[in-house]
Amino acid sequence: MNSPKLDPVQAHTLPSQVVKADEPILVAAAKSGDVSAFEALVNRYERKIFRLTQNITQNREDAEDAMQEAFLKAYEHLSEFEGNSRFYTWLVRIAVNQALMKLRRRRSNVVSLDDEIDTGEDMIPREVEDWGPSPMERYEQTELAGILSKVISELDPPFRIVFQLRDIEQLSTEETADALNLSIPAVKSRLLRARLKLRQKLNQYFRQGANS
């Protein structure tokens, strides 16, 4: 058998936001033993999965390990994927589990994801300045990526992870609750808190005149 060849170009030209229509075809081929189909799935999702594990663990080494373990686990358990959800959603769930194990191992005092969390206080936004049109255009792409990475890293894990799954990975509330073993009201309250906190943190960069 030839050694699998992974194409580095393909991964960097695929739009990350779109789950391609050929995903079920690739998954079916990979399930039947076509390794190049699995490689194509890895190339498609490696950047997103690494951002996910990085945002959860906030540690480069753990993020890399969690990503690697997630892809290997997905390959190992591919026959168990029944197609009831998108493959990407299934992969995200595996990656979240791997990343959470790393996070808990490194930060034994971290707030448990399933602890009750007070989301009631400090909810009223204090800063209500308009951002004006297209605030993102005031920053270079790499500068913007740095800002987003910084502000999300400042959220506590229970809020950060719910925001990551709902608003970045675009999982539904139900899928997020299921992946994190949380109730739907808990997901909703954490998501609201996360969105408001991020809005407040971004306000310093995006309010009109902020970087002029």
């Binding site: 990350s16 936001q17 950047r47 997103k48 993102m136 987003l148 999300i152 608003d167 970045i168």
Partner: peptide, 8 residues
């Protein structure tokens, strides 16, 4: 902004 951001 977060939803549309491309992963590095």
């Amino acid at each position: 902004i977060f939803c549309n951001s491309e992963p590095a």
